[in-house]
Write a protein that binds this DNA or RNA. Structure first.
Lengths: 249, 249
DNA sequence: CGGCGGGCATTGTCCGGACATTTTGCGCTT
DNA sequence: AAGCGCAAAATGTCCGGACAATGCCCGCCG
C-alpha cells in the first residue's frame, strides 16, 4: 500500500477516536465499540484497531476487560507532572557521605505535641532513635534527626547501622517490607534552643522541619522521621517533569 | 495449542529475557538479539517476540531504533517513586480560593542578591509583579509573592488576571508555551521586617521561602516566582508513590 | 581521499486468520 | 423460583506473511 498522508493508520485511528471521545460521542462510563465494530467501520484489521485502542488505554482514556468489553474512562488526558526519585535514597539528598551520630535511644509513648509533629494519634508507642547527622568530610553537623520506628520492628534496634544505608531501608530489607509510599512534609520553625548548640546554630534562627513517613501498604507508616535543618545549610529542591508519551501527534 | 503451564508465551519470554539481562548475558550498552534471532531461538513468531520486547521496553530495560536495532539500557528495574501532580495547579496548593493583591509592578534588572534568590545570573531584565496572596474567604493574607516574567513575555503585563488561573498558566496559554518542567526549591528564612506587617506576622519569625522556576523546553525558565509563607500558616506536603506496572509476574 | 548513493539489515506497520480465555446472560432443569 | 450449565460475545494470544521506513555500511566516483 502506498504512503497515506504520512501517519500510520493506527495513529490516525487513535487520534480520531480520541477526538470522538473528547467531543462527547462516547461518554465517560459508556461502552466503547468493540474491536470488530471499529474494524468494520474504519476498514482496518482488528490488529490495527487493537494498536490504536492500546494507545488510548495507556493514556487512560479507555479500559478493557476480557469478555466484558471496553469502557470510556476519561474524556481527555490532562497534562501530568511527576517528580522522579529513583532509588528513593535520593530523597534524603545527602544519603551517602553522612553519618548518624546517635545521641538518644529508647521507647517513647508519644503525647499531644510530638504526636502532632509526627502526624499520628497520641498514645502510640515507638522506638525513638535521635542524633546528629554529620558530613563524613569534616564532621560538620548537618541536622538533628529523630527516627521513630513502629514497635513491631523494634527488633532492629541492635542491628541498626549508622552508615550509608537509610534506616527505613534497613528495616524494609530485614523484614521484607515493600515500601510503597513516602510522605514528606516541610515546614519552617524556629531552631529549638537545646538543638542550637549541638548544631552550631543560633537559637530561634529559622530552620526547616522535614517530616518523612514511610508506608508499606495501607494503614499506618512503619517509620516516621523528623529532621531539623538550620536554614542556612539546607534547601529542598525538586524538579517536576511533564511525563507523557510525546511521540508523534 | 493446549494450555502451556498457564502463562502466555510472550510473558514467559519477557520474563526469560529479563532474567538473562539481569544475569549479565547481555550487558548494558550491548546490542540485543534481533527479532528474527529471538524468534528462531525460542520458536515463536516475531509477533510474540515483539510483544515481549515491548514490555521490556516499557520497563526501561531495552530501547529500540528502527533500522538500527535493539540496545540494552538497564540491567534491572529499580523501584521508582513518583510524585504525581495532576494539572500542576495543585502544586500551588491553594490554587483557587485565593487572589493576588497586586502591590508592586515594573521592570527590574536583577543584581547579586536577588539573582541568587532567583537562581539566575545577575544583570538579566525581568518584569516583576509582587503582591499579597489572600484567601478569598476572609481576605486573610497567606503569603507574599513575587513573580518574575522573562522580558520576552512582558506583553502579558496588561492582560494578567489575578484570579484563579496561575500566572504561568496564563502566559503559557497566551504564547503557546509548553510547560515541560517546574523546579521547586524550599528553604527557611527569617520573615523580612517590611513584609511582616503586610502579612500580619512577627518580624524575623521563621518563614518558608518557596521558589518555583517554570521551564518551557531547554534553557532558561520563562517565569520564576518567589513566595514567602509565615511558618505557622503553611507546610509543603508531597506524597511519593511507587509506580510500576505490577501486572502478573 | 572524501562525499554520495544504493543495498542490506533491522525495526515498524498492517493484513487475515485461528483459537484461548473471560464474562454475561439466557434457558433449561430441578 | 432458584441454580446450573452452556452458548455467545468480547477481549487476549499467536501464527505466518508482506511491505514500509529507517539507519548503517560499503563501495563507487569525483
Amino acid at each position: 500500500m502506498p504512503t497515506r498522508g504520512q501517519m500510520a493508520r493506527y495513529k490516525e485511528l487513535r487520534a480520531t477516536l480520541a477526538r470522538e471521545i473528547s467531543a462527547g460521542r462516547y461518554k465517560v462510563g459508556d461502552r466503547f465499540p468493540t474491536d470488530l465494530e471499529l474494524s468494520a467501520r474504519f476498514r482496518v484489521s482488528r490488529h490495527t484497531v487493537r494498536e490504536a485502542v492500546r494507545g488510548l488505554q495507556e493514556l487512560g482514556l479507555l479500559s478493557r476487560q476480557a469478555g466484558s468489553g471496553t469502557v470510556v474512562r476519561a474524556r481527555s488526558v490532562e497534562p501530568l507532572y511527576t517528580q522522579r526519585v529513583d532509588s528513593l535514597a535520593e530523597l534524603a539528598e545527602y544519603a551517602a557521605d553522612t553519618r548518624l551520630d546517635r545521641r538518644q535511644e529508647g521507647f517513647v509513648v508519644v503525647r499531644q505535641g510530638l504526636a502532632e509533629l509526627m502526624g499520628r494519634p497520641p498514645g502510640e508507642r515507638w522506638l525513638r532513635v535521635a542524633g546528629i547527622r554529620r558530613a563524613v568530610q569534616g564532621n560538620f553537623p548537618l541536622c538533628w534527626t529523630e527516627i521513630f520506628l513502629a514497635e513491631r520492628y523494634a527488633g532492629m534496634r541492635d542491628r541498626l547501622d549508622d552508615g550509608d544505608v537509610p534506616i527505613f531501608n534497613q528495616v524494609a530489607r530485614e523484614y521484607g517490607l515493600d515500601v510503597t509510599a513516602v510522605e514528606q512534609r516541610i515546614s519552617a520553625i524556629a531552631m529549638p534552643p537545646y538543638l542550637a548548640e549541638w548544631l552550631g546554630a543560633a537559637p530561634a534562627e529559622p530552620a526547616l522541619l522535614v517530616r518523612r513517613s514511610y508506608y508499606s501498604g495501607a494503614g499506618a507508616p512503619f517509620e516516621v522521621s523528623l529532621s531539623v535543618h538550620p536554614g542556612d545549610r539546607y534547601a529542598y529542591t525538586a524538579r517536576l517533569t511533564r511525563d507523557r508519551k510525546t511521540e508523534n501527534a
